[in-house]
Nucleic acid binder design. Structure first.
Lengths: 348, 348
DNA sequence: AATATTTTCGACAGCGGTGTCAATGGAATC
DNA sequence: GATTCCATTGACACCGCTGTCGAAAATATT
């Protein structure tokens, strides 16, 4: 109508004409609806392929009221490596199903835009569904906005209200337990833990796993072995300084995330301790930091991309089946212990 | 028509009726077209606000042939922190102009999907324009795909063919020069450089800046002071080992990116050198790694988010003015030296 | 005051698909 | 052979907006 078509493509009408059928039949074929004769279907498919036809997304959305767009919501896109991983997985699932991935961020309420800006975006974008990542997946305002918009959503690793929506998760507690036992089985008996922020659910679950493991082995973890941290490398450094100042110095330190583990490595170096000879340090998450650190961190691999992929799958599967939306579903993914160079048996 | 409207919203018809004007007039108002009386415009705007009307994106796209979607293309979304930064900036610009951001990735040709998968996505998604990031912005196949699709595009920090499209960039050479001079001015005279991959344009420009700075000060950089690296921390470690093995050991090391600088820190620790007392190490890029490292890295801040923001702006501005597309435009952004803890004057 | 211009506004035809529903025709049933 | 029944298929309205173009109203010109 108005602008020159960027690349003169075909429309469903062209295909219908070429195949000698109605546009509705073509529509049926490309949407894999039934009720089309095998022969007709084959002919149409052939022509579609030959002419390189691809349906117009806008027209399809307008008519069907689906956008074929999935949104992933982050608190701050720039902040964490996490974000990239999530996108990789989500994109994979989207492509498989013919969806596209739109990235949205909710800025903290004080920032320009804030949650309101997010709500507006939500309405405009007409997502078919959204995936919420931590910590937005536990933000009451964000959840309210999404629910008000009537959008189906799946949460990744939520901290609470597990009945509120479908979600995917990993067993942090169990992973931390295994991570701790790995140190134990190497022979470590004085194992310290660097905790994450108090309001961070997965940090709490990891701490829980650590405690459980020790109790399992008949050891009551001493309070001074659990050092407060903030998930940042500097806090890991400080925490380690405190731990190394203890009368009975730990032989192994388990940091609740990789960044703090890197801080721990630095503190060890400052104290002239060689890792893993004099001190073992293990992390959690398996971010690129873990691989880049020196020595390379022994850690727990969190299947971030896979969780995102699963989340998008659940979402898309749910579209077909309205009941799925109501029914709460959860999907668990497996972690994996990663053995690298920062942990070893303690010196006799 | 078919599914129950998620949240019963208004259409342009409702607004027109409420305002007592034609839908076309409402359309004019919301698109800020001229040719509407001030009074009429005000009335319509008021009703739009009161009823909370937001135009249906699909309908608008179908009719206007614009999708209000901007694509950002990455090689591998998961790999670099870079990706998040770019998205932050791009999203900022998109929101301001009422666009949405879709993330796409081109997988290496050998991967499932590969460049072909990307080309298909391009056609489906009907982007109004795309932003290409390194290294895809120099990939002939990718460029060909984008151009074949007839899409306007802006590149971020391309390495070559600067006439081929508008682009945004930062002066790597000058920044590296300043970074080197900073070390020089601290009193360092034996400054080594850890180079990036041979085919990486910005690495070459940084090396050039390093060389220039030394020549500026009347020093011809010795070949053995320039160590090969691969932008990965391990390669920085190895390079540093070689440099520290030199008869006349350098007092400062300038790594062409932060990751290699982190490797350098590790190598220094292994050699029992305290940074920055015994050895200064500086990086480039100012990724989170720089802040997380121990000691925190003195580096050069690359305005990644701002570059992406500028790229999207150029793209959107170009839509209004067809001539802009043809005309090559470039926009330069400023780097910023970041002073942290890994560099200090050499020991007397 | 009559006419020429300009500004403001609306009718209407698409954009390219999907949903509804009725028509067609061959197989199955009686 | 007439009737009923599915499986196929197509006609057509419609999704909500923008572009075109002509009409009406306001303003300027002579």
């Amino acid at each position: 109508m108005q602008r020159d078509p960027p690349a003169a493509k075909f429309t469903i009408v062209d295909i219908a004409r070429a195949a000698g059928v109605s546009i509705k039949t073509v529509s049926r074929v490309i949407n894999q609806e039934e009720g089309v004769g095998a022969e007709t279907r084959a002919r149409v498919l052939e022509i579609v392929a030959a002419m390189g036809y691809r349906p117009n997304v806008s027209a399809r959305s307008l008519s069907s009221r689906r956008s074929y767009l999935i949104g992933v919501i982050f608190m701050r896109v720039g902040a964490y490596h996490y974000v990239g991983e999530v996108q990789v997985g989500a994109m994979r699932a989207c492509r498989r199903a013919g969806y596209h991935l739109v990235v949205e961020q909710v800025l903290p309420p004080d920032a320009v835009g804030g949650v309101q800006g997010f709500a507006d975006e939500l309405r405009d974008a007409r997502f078919d569904g959204v995936v919420l990542t931590p910590p937005t997946c536990d933000d009451p305002e964000v959840l309210a906005a999404v629910e008000t918009a009537g959008l189906p959503y799946v949460r990744i690793a939520p901290d609470r209200e597990f009945e509120r929506s479908p979600y995917v998760f990993m067993d942090d507690r169990k992973a931390a337990r295994e991570q701790t036992l790995r140190l134990w089985n190497m022979g470590h008996r004085r194992i310290a833990f660097i905790d994450g922020p108090a309001d961070h659910g997965s940090a709490a679950r990891r701490r829980q796993g650590y405690i459980e493991a020790l109790r399992d082995r008949g050891v009551e973890p001493r309070p001074e072995w659990i050092a407060k941290g903030e998930f940042l490398s500097l806090s890991g450094f400080d925490a380690t300084e405190r731990l190394l100042g203890l009368p009975e110095r730990p032989t192994a330190i388990f940091a609740a995330n990789d960044e703090m583990a890197v801080g721990a490595l630095a503190a060890a170096a400052k104290h002239g301790l060689s890792v893993p000879r004099d001190l073992s340090v293990v992390g959690f998450d398996d971010t690129p930091t873990a691989e880049a650190a020196w020595p390379r961190l022994t850690t727990v691999h969190q299947p971030t991309a896979e969780m995102a992929e699963a989340a998008v799958e659940m979402l898309i599967d749910g579209f077909g089946d309205e009941r799925l939306r109501a029914r709460v579903a959860a999907r668990q993914l497996d972690y994996r212990l990663v053995q690298r160079d920062s942990a070893a048996p303690p010196l006799a």
